[in-house]
Design a binder for these strands. Sequence first.
DNA 1: TTTAGTAGTAAACAAATGAGCACTATTATG
DNA 2: CATAATAGTGCTCATTTGTTTACTACTAAA
Lengths: 217, 217
Amino acid sequence: MKNKLTDRQEEILTFIKQFREENGYPPTLREIGKKFGISSTFGVKRHLDALVKKGYLNIESNASRGISFQKGVEEIQDEKFFRIQEDYGFYKIPVVGRVAAGIPILAEENIEGSVVIDSSFMKKSEDCFALKVKGDSMINAGIFENDLVIISNKREIVNGDIVVALLEDEATVKTYEIKNKSIRLLPQNNNYQPIDIKDVENFKLIGKVIGIVRWLN
Amino acid sequence: MKNKLTDRQEEILTFIKQFREENGYPPTLREIGKKFGISSTFGVKRHLDALVKKGYLNIESNASRGISFQKGVEEIQDEKFFRIQEDYGFYKIPVVGRVAAGIPILAEENIEGSVVIDSSFMKKSEDCFALKVKGDSMINAGIFENDLVIISNKREIVNGDIVVALLEDEATVKTYEIKNKSIRLLPQNNNYQPIDIKDVENFKLIGKVIGIVRWLN
DNA sequence: TTTAGTAGTAAACAAATGAGCACTATTATG
DNA sequence: CATAATAGTGCTCATTTGTTTACTACTAAA
């Protein structure tokens, strides 16, 4: 049961978390006092005692640097998040749902969730995202409806690559063909015709498909 | 660059990790000494200095409980590992390579790596593993050579499911058909014939394919 | 106005903790 | 055999760190 903290107490709690994250051990009373301009260790102690009473910290009495967090307090920070991704070998990438007209594909409004991807399949510097496949136009390439395709916007696109493009504000997955400066999007299903790109204003190449994830039932 | 540790140094490093995990702060020299029956702080200090020198610890001088780990040292313990998996929403599952005859498929000798899978696609209680697909017998089901198939051994298998089975000590991915107590394994490629299972001694059903992961180039 | 809670001061004291010295003992290697 | 490395002893001293006392000041609520 955690009670509400004052602004000051909240600041001090945050500092303790950060200090421990950076140093591998918690701060002393004097280190906390220095950070917040409190010259008396007793002033700091008051705050710590309040944080103990309100259910956030444990203080081991008569133990140097004996501060620890009560259960559930140690929030995950962004920096730690990325380190853990590296340590464990994964990235969490956004899943794009419907694409709203006129805004970047990775804008918040287009994001409908996220998915974890093994880090051996992409580079940290790639802004990858996932897109759910609609339709069966790429079925001969082993891309089925409801599959997630993983898109990288940092890789060079060459003839024959599977790409995601925006066509009249609709995202589509197709094979990319460029010939004599003319672009075609080829389906991989005999029931569909290739698409010649004539109106470049309604066409935008988003990125290259680098992976496919499918979940049965 | 981490050099080899003596047994004693290894024990002490492990204790420091555990102590910090349990208490939220590192141990003092005297606490380490007590644990290992070393009565002099200097004896403990020797070990810590060696661990610093060999690239495992940092010791802040003249700081009580000033022990921290050098980068990459904080091994992930099983308990913490599972908690992080839950927090971040992934599982790390083994990748099975060649299957050796006569031993369980998840035996260490068969494992050639691991892969991270988003946790929304499987349950914690499932002992899932991944298997790399060889051949193109399931191409019409959108399963290509070199794809990873994710196998669950905890799900009920019904007619028409895609399964992994052992056939004469060879792992194979096929569609499962059972009719009149007779089992067939159906390829999804017109170039291959269905396989009737006649010799049940050389046949073993391993599990159901619940997912597919493909990485292009 | 009174009371309670929050936030601090300065200082002394007590306890915890690290640092260092001079040594011994054992094992492995050249 | 000699040397180096590892592993410890007992002890003292220096530094760090927490605890306590007696106080002030401000704000909010009853």
